[in-house]
Amino acid sequence: MKRNSLALTLSATALYLFLYAPIAVVIVYSFNAARFGATWTGFTTKWYSTLLHNSLALHAAENTLWLGVFSTVISTVLGTLLGFGMSRYEFPGKEVFGKLLYVPVFVPDIVLAVSLLLFYSIIRSWLGLLELGLTTMILAHVTFQIPFVAIVVRARLVGLDPSLEEAARDLGANEWQAFRHVILPLILPGVMAGGMLAFTLSLDDFVVSFFTSGPGSTTLPILIYSSVKRGITPDINALSTLIILASVLATIVVAILQRIKTSTRNHIK
């Protein structure tokens, strides 16, 4: 028994180190006073203040935020409607379409990115629309976010008693009122969790953003990538640390929303 628990502790420690050591290193080195290299020369927070005066980084942060907010709002609305439609209506090919929903989740980002770039350039040459920039990036992000939102929302809807909607209609609510006053409030935790998931995906995305970005629409992941090509600087570490912090916060919010989901489930059934 003892041997077993020792092996378990060791392997767990190794696994956690494997997962989190690189992240920890970035966080630690964001406080390293040395300008170059991996030697520790003392604690400082000056890289965070340089970051605040780095107009490129601030602009990229602003782009990232707008991209995240816009794409999340759009994909949450569309994904929720999709999830609702998928669980509520019967239509030919529903089974196949339900499976197809997972394709964007499994397709490698690079393939999706190349496809989107090609697609946008075709549209541009035909219609003269869609110059590469923040707009194309928002569209691209919405494309990969929708399935995630729809899948989360649909899972929530599956647990919902269908007679609740029927009761609403029976009591005089039209379809929109039934959705607005009964369905939506009950699936809201799922919608919010889907939205937060979409937001983190947008925040972290590099590949799709890189391919669909245009001049002036650099986001933080793209900025980091291009800076790193010129060597890792401590302010990049600081920037990465801030992004990690944002992702962790978003994950915590999702977890809390998921908990609301489980605690209200018994009311729903």
């Binding site: 029927e166 009761a167 029976d170 009591l171 009964v182 729903i268």
Partner: peptide, 16 residues
């Protein structure tokens, strides 16, 4: 939603 009838559902279907 426009019929002059109302239903008491087997599962009650109260809005939680």
């Amino acid at each position: 939603h426009k019929r002059p009838v109302n239903t008491v559902f087997q599962s009650y279907a109260l809005f939680p």
